[in-house]
Amino acid sequence: MDNQIALVTGASRGIGRAIAAVLGQQGMRVAGTATTEEGAQRIQQELSSQGHEALGLCLNLTDTASMDAALERINQTFGAAPLVLVNNAGITRDNLMMRMKDEEWDAIIATNLSAVFQLTKRCMRAMTKARYGRIINITSVVGFSGNAGQTNYAAAKAGLVGFSKSLAREIGARGVTVNCVAPGFIDTDMTSSLPEPQREALLKNIPLGRLGQAEEVASAVAFLASAQAGYITGETLHVNGGMLMD
């Protein structure tokens, strides 16, 4: 998989940043996206300083023209389309259902679910043509367990699982695998905002007794992105310290 091109969305922080780094270590050329130009530059600098061939891109996931432009830049820079796609970017708009506004619901569905459809669709053709591809969608333990205050987020994340299984059936014959990685409670900006009592309560339910690290999620992604994982498709790999077991 040397020189293979990987596209990772939401790569400026947290789990996405760790995924971009580990795919770079595996010898892939990594395009990482952020929502701002500064974020894109940071991705490019950081990956380049680690010695990886990299491209930082500013991408608005609610704008398909922005997706087309980003994919065009990847083509121009690397001379080919990505055969590894990691749909990692995600946002939260938590609220109890009774208080949840339509906009909070819509924003989550647009960024966490619809954008995955739109970007994956734009990347699929190159993969089916190449008779090879790895699509990895970052879902969440919450999509399986549910979580008060996250009806929108949990719906989108569970939606990704059904999406992935269906697509896996559609393009398996082309050597393209589609899988999910479901992180549990990972130490990132997204979870650091949780109040201390809630944090304590959560930790009690994690057999490994600690938060996960972004790198621990990234290594699961790297495995599914590898040629060695070629017989795994439509699957979800849970990385949650035992917080939820199927």
Partner: peptide
């Protein structure tokens, strides 16, 4: 051809 083949053919 299967259904995916025909879609790819059209594309």
């Amino acid at each position: 051809a299967d259904s995916l083949d025909t879609v790819e053919l059209v594309m």
